[in-house]
């Protein structure tokens, strides 16, 4: 049975790899310091594979068939797709047994993700994967989520997905230690007139609730209200997936900086998991609304 290690979530603005120097030095130092601290925990705790939950940016899917969730089950993946991202481009090893366990066992947990043997990876996953393993040798399962195209899965559904992912990964016998990580958000606007704005008040409100483990207000947010923190704020679905996975453990904020040149509220949280919480306390929390 696999143990979950190194659980964390981070924002993933492409500029953190494409033009890192564009951020004010202190903000850059604080945010990237948080990312490095979280990534180091994954390495030091001996993860043999990593599952990264992040959102689709029309990199793999278009509107003729846009999955709410998709597991990358391939033996390898290719990325990053953005030629301007300052990360080595090439093949990333997959973890097909673990991915197959997720695709095969999540239906019994009430989730039916699509699956793909040929996923391409963009900044959403690659910035965080590269932070965890700059050598690109750690086997990766990309777990793509729809955080952009309406209708999207509800926030509560994403939280429950995290609980289900935990049960499946903890039942996996092909590795002893697996990291499950989230990437996306926080507040930002993209491709719209308000591009460049950051809603610091929303970011603090959200992070405080993650720290307290009091998520009712968040999980009940209608999409129209969430979008008042930017159309990119829908990416908190990945944060809530990891919050569900980690429950009843609560988040520790490692860093938060509203980095204007990166047009995003850039945060990092980490979790110290209590054993097998999702199977007992986590499920109970979801049943009563987290």
């Amino acid at each position: 049975m696999a143990q979950l290690v190194g659980t964390f979530v981070s924002s993933h603005a492409p500029m953190m790899a494409a033009s890192v120097e564009s951020a004010p030095p202190e903000q850059r130092r604080n945010f990237l310091g948080g990312v490095q601290q979280a990534a180091r925990r994954v390495r030091e705790q001996g993860a043999e594979a990593v599952v990264i939950c992040s959102n689709e940016h029309f990199t793999n899917f278009f509107l003729e068939n846009f999955p709410q969730f998709c597991v990358g089950v391939g033996a390898s993946h290719w990325g990053p797709v953005e030629p301007w991202l300052k990360i080595d481009h090439g093949e990333i090893p997959g973890a097909p047994e673990l991915a197959g366990q997720l695709a095969g066992q999540l239906p019994a947990e009430g989730f039916e993700p699509s699956f793909s043997h040929e996923l391409r990876l963009d900044h959403g996953i690659m910035t965080i994967y590269h932070s965890i393993d700059p050598s690109h040798r750690l086997p990766l399962v990309p777990f793509i989520q729809n955080c952009a195209v309406k209708p999207m899965p509800s926030l509560r559904r994403c939280y429950q997905l995290g609980q289900a992912i935990r049960r499946v990964v903890e039942g996996f016998t092909g590795a002893e230690r697996v990291a499950v990580v989230g990437a996306g958000g926080l507040s930002h606007w993209i491709g719209v007139p308000r591009v460049g704005d950051i809603d610091v008040e929303f970011d603090h409100w959200f992070l405080e609730r993650l720290e307290r483990g009091q998520l009712d207000d968040v999980l009940d947010l209608p999409d129209a209200e969430l979008e008042l923190a930017g159309n990119g704020a829908h990416e908190i679905r990945s944060w809530l997936t990891i919050a569900g996975l980690a429950a009843p453990s609560t988040a520790k904020v490692l860093a938060y900086e509203p980095i204007a040149p990166w047009i995003t509220g850039m945060g990092v949280v980490a979790y110290d998991l209590e054993p097998s919480a999702a199977g007992a306390g986590g499920a109970a929390a979801a049943a009563k609304g987290a």
Partner: peptide
Amino acid sequence: LYQLGVHPVLINA
């Protein structure tokens, strides 16, 4: 393109 309803993620890219 924005006024014609193109998705913002496509607008950005």
